[in-house]
């Protein structure tokens, strides 16, 4: 129950692409910390998939973290996809926030296939 295990960032490599998995609750209390961890993880990646299916909660501060990440990837020309299965807590918040549809995927496999 301690704040440090509220949200975890883990990475894996699949087909030469970096998959960043977020698990737990991503809210304003941990957004800064998660943003630093994600930025560090994707710094050298050529293509990124962010998997949000492990999140049990996502708030607007968390959406802002994703927004920054997308912006940074666009600037560097790194393709990026966000995975949030419809019906999941993350998908709910992203829909409410009108997150851009074209980067959203329903599964990691779909995201990997969709990347150039």
């Amino acid at each position: 129950m301690s704040p440090d295990d509220a949200c975890r960032v883990s990475t894996a490599e699949r087909d030469g692409r970096l998959v960043v998995c977020l698990t737990g609750e991503l809210d304003v209390a941990v957004a800064g910390e998660v943003e630093r961890a994600v930025n560090a993880a994707v710094a050298a990646a050529a293509a990124v998939v962010v998997d949000l299916d492990g999140l049990t909660f996502l708030d607007s501060a968390g959406v802002r973290v994703l927004d920054h990440l997308l912006g940074a990837c666009y600037e560097r020309g790194v393709p990026v996809r966000v995975v949030a299965t419809p019906g999941s807590p993350a998908a709910f918040t992203l829909r409410v926030c009108a997150f851009p549809d074209h980067v959203m995927c329903a599964s990691t496999d779909e995201a990997l296939a969709d990347l150039p």
């Binding site: 909660f57 708030d59 918040t93």
Partner: peptide, 12 residues
């Protein structure tokens, strides 16, 4: 889900 998120945003 909606009410938890709404209350969370307002409280934040």
């Amino acid at each position: 889900d909606a009410l938890v998120l709404a209350a969370n945003e307002a409280a934040a």
